[in-house]
Design a protein around this nucleic acid. Structure first.
Length: 217
DNA sequence: CCATAGATGCACT
DNA sequence: GTGCATCTATGGC
């Protein structure tokens, strides 16, 4: 059980200086706020996933340090933003001591401030869908490639985490991570029960290859 | 509701 | 060349 923190207090770096699997459930209910020239959007986190360092086959860090994942190997409290599927950005917060490459993927949340700005970034999205899914969350917050490596614990951070209303332990759920083949036995996806903003679960879809085109068994 | 396909750039093998 | 820690549109029921 984590000690209660004053509502709205910035989350200190020490919070992230633990294993991602320990940090992830504690992150639920916290509020991520991004101030830009366009305005401020704040999101209450409802769904996250832990990536457990270089030993985790599902992690980008599994095959060692590369230019892309370098931030993961750095100090806790920094943002690891990566580009995927040719069009999407997803964001993690680095955890554990430097060099561990442990991180938490922020998968979904509820927009609690700046809904108008978030909606302008996500045209056509219903309120509950504004930040439902990791790539949508990044868009709603206005986070992209240039935010990779940002320190969310810095004194003057325009992108930072605050504590929110505590989430009862009884409301925290966990299960397999989305779209990750390795570690189906590790329930490192955490979410708040009965939250409409939690992304739809999609199990990993194995790729079929080498078959004749159009052939179906 | 559910299932599938296509988009699209880049890191890595 | 292969395969994404995804999203959206479309088509079937």
């Amino acid at each position: 059980m984590t000690p209660a923190r004053p509502l709205g207090a910035p989350v200190p770096r020490s919070f992230f200086a633990r294993d991602a699997v320990a940090v992830a459930p504690d992150l639920l209910g916290c509020v991520l706020e991004n101030r830009t020239d366009a305005g401020t959007v704040a999101v209450r986190l409802t769904e996250v996933e832990a990536y457990h360092g270089a030993a985790d086959p599902g992690s980008h860090a599994y095959r060692g340090r590369t230019p892309r994942n370098a931030v993961m190997f750095g100090d806790p409290g920094h943002l690891y933003v990566y580009f995927t599927y040719g069009m999407h950005y997803c964001m993690n917060v680095v955890c554990a001591p430097g060099g561990t490459a442990s991180a938490v993927l922020l998968r979904a949340g509820e927009v609690v401030r700046g809904a108008e700005l978030a909606t302008s970034r996500r045209l056509g999205a219903a309120p509950r869908d504004l930040a439902r899914g990791p790539a949508r969350l990044a868009v709603a917050l206005g986070v992209g490639r240039t935010d990779n490596g940002r320190d969310v614990c810095a004194r003057d951070a325009s992108l930072r985490l605050r504590t929110g209303s505590p989430v009862p332990v009884s409301s925290v759920r966990s299960g397999p991570r989305v779209g990750v083949a390795a570690g189906a036995d590790t329930p490192w996806r955490f979410w708040i029960a009965d939250e409409p903003t939690v992304s739809a679960y999609r199990a990993h879809v194995p790729k079929r290859r080498g078959d004749a085109r159009g052939f179906r068994p």
